[in-house]
Design a protein around this nucleic acid. Structure first.
Lengths: 121, 121
DNA sequence: CAAACAAGTGAGCACATGTTCATATGAATA
DNA sequence: TATTCATATGAACATGTGCTCACTTGTTTG
């Protein structure tokens, strides 16, 4: 009766009870799973990919980004809010402009690794 | 008239023309952007995160996975199809069972790196 | 101060996505 | 062969998501 091993252990006789127990014990806790899904989900959109890639080359303001992508600044702003909230980018205000940069080296690395994966097939 | 630098270069006088040109030149091509978004999007779902993490600990059949997650095997099967199509997992048939494993070391690395990112805040 | 402008935001809409349910397929077994 | 079971799949439905449009905010500049 230790580790939630008998709650909904399905009625099916699908074998591998040992594996199930083992994997269950090492299962990702829900916070981590949600967190991972959130980060990856944020990276999982064409527009945001392009924004992040653009920012990986240096600081840009909203207007620049929308010009580069050929998107409306409203759309870009909406996306930037998501990225900002998730701390993937950070903002610096200067007069009328707000300049964005990648928030953290992790993002850059994740991005680079994903790119490597994509290019390799 | 080289690199799509004057098509829709917005009428706004938002400055930074130099940066825009530079970033545009180095912009991710559409295939890469789509590919990246697809991979990351696939990782961007709680259920699939849990599936992949379970598989990172070894081979499991659909039934095992659904037992571990507490999800229906139908739901799991649907997700596995997506992961299989994107070559993130691969399947091995043995009798009535189909055993799944991570397809490639990249996935494991991406996953690990994402996890690191999440745990570090 | 008023006009111009960059950026942010809420509502609404079209479309994507994850789940369930019913059913199909295909292999093992009685 | 008929049944049982693991897996797969299509349709339907509910929810999530990204965009546009209209508008607001806040800053610069005429």
């Amino acid at each position: 009766m230790n580790n939630a091993t008998e709650l909904d252990v399905c009625e099916k006789q699908c074998l591998h009870q040992d594996r199930i127990e083992r994997v269950r014990g090492a299962m990702l806790d829900d916070r981590a799973a949600e967190g991972l899904a959130e980060i990856f989900g944020l990276l999982g959109d064409r527009t945001r990919v392009l924004i992040l890639h653009a920012l990986s080359q240096g600081e840009l303001c909203v207007c620049d980004i929308s010009a580069v992508l050929g998107a409306t600044s409203s759309a870009v702003s909406h996306q930037l809010r998501l990225l900002r909230t998730a701390k993937l980018v950070k903002a610096r205000k200067e007069g009328k402009n707000v300049f964005y940069t990648l928030d953290d080296e992790h993002v850059r690395q994740l991005f680079a690794q994903g790119l490597e994966h994509v290019l390799e097939r």
